[in-house]
Design a protein around this nucleic acid. Structure first.
Lengths: 218, 218
DNA sequence: AAATATTTTTAGATAACTCTAAAATATTTT
DNA sequence: AAAATATTTTAGAGTTATCTAAAAATATTT
């Protein structure tokens, strides 16, 4: 059985391999988790011994099939709890992350099965991210980071890279929410900032840091 | 902030002081928690430093006001989650404990406030135990001598009048203990004796002398 | 290719929680 | 009251997860 810490490392490695190369570096993990590289080295040696990753010194880690499945189970729990918090307990979408980080480690097969049923088998969480099923399968929607699209492109916000509640609060404040329709009306090439029109009503100006973390579909 | 382990010790100490003397012994705690007495000594020294208990070496611990409040908050969470599991997720009453033991440690004021609201402010958990409010207050169930109740009444043994050890030894021998669930299955009016079912398992006959000294709550 | 910089690992420490074994203290029995 | 027994604490050690500082390996620059 995996400890909370091991589950968190595995989740981080999974996310990092998902959005980049298959090899994940020690520093990338330590950045993502706010731990020191030395701690990461220790942990990935242990995860390798448990067959969750394959680790070659100085070359980084690859998540194994087994490790991926474990990570997906944790992600499944995280996202189902987020749905519960928003749909049933009326949390705002920017208030759920911290609590879901705790709830995702509760161990009970029956609990998560019944929760899924209680929530009527949701397919996406409140940020628009897909919820893996018991086998780790999930609908993969093609999501484009907003900073990659041209002027004139129209789309719908389907997800945000979860950057913590201050980011989500900022989005909320400027009128950006999940499912909002948008159009890119201006783009400043040299700094990547852009102006977007939300729901054909409201224009907002956002930096590249923000647009990189907003994902749309066309 | 208290660790999970500290919360669990405090809960145990609270329960033990509730159902007995104010002084709680090291061995009683280690029994209740399935840890070794040596570990208990360590932990209660720490809880004393944090002002959660007062501890005198070789004499046992007394829970402080602060410690009692902390314990009651954990108990509140535990019992609210039990209600959630039974009422919303259709768990059986005997399946909830282990999961609630995990859920009770989730830290979020908002979560527990909203959960309480979602469950419509329940006053008791699925085992009939009262749920403390945010201030630690809970309805103290009235204690009824067993000889005063009718056939069919179900309850929980919360106390005994006669503290003599031979009486307690007798109760122990016939399978009666503090916290046992019971149901009165038969009553002989002329001599006041009765048959009771303990924990839905075991039937015992007791005289009026005995039933007068057993206190239950419904 | 050598020098420099960066990344990663190792070594040694610390903190929390647990254990076993031995010592100290309290209780019970004779 | 002394001896025997039981309880509790202390001492020392192991595990997990973290850290800092130093060493080793890899990557980059000149």
């Amino acid at each position: 059985m995996l400890s909370f810490a091991e589950e968190n490392y595995l989740k981080a490695i999974f996310h990092l391999s998902d959005s980049g190369a298959t090899e994940v570096s020690t520093n990338a993990i330590s950045d993502h988790m706010s731990t020191k590289p030395a701690s990461v080295s220790d942990m990935i040696r242990k995860l390798d011994e448990k067959g969750m990753v394959t680790y070659k010194k100085y070359y980084g880690v690859n998540i194994s099939k087994k490790g991926k499945m474990m990570a997906l189970q944790v992600i499944r729990k995280h996202r189902l709890w987020e749905v519960f918090l928003v749909d049933k307990l009326k949390f705002n979408w920017d208030e759920v992350h911290e609590v879901a980080e705790q709830l995702e480690h509760i161990r009970s097969g029956l609990l998560i099965q019944r929760l899924d049923e209680f929530l009527d088998y949701p397919k996406v969480d409140p940020h628009g991210d897909p919820i893996p099923d018991e086998n780790g399968d999930m609908a993969v929607a093609k999501k484009t980071p907003l900073d990659k699209v041209e002027v004139g492109v129209k789309g719908k916000i389907v997800a945000v890279n979860d950057e913590g509640s201050s980011f989500l609060q900022y989005l909320d404040k400027i009128g950006i929410y999940l499912g909002a329709k948008l159009e890119v009306t201006e783009r400043v090439d040299f700094d990547g900032s852009m102006e977007i029109l939300i729901d054909n009503k409201q224009k907002v100006f956002i930096s590249r840091e923000v647009s990189q973390n907003i994902l749309i579909t066309d």
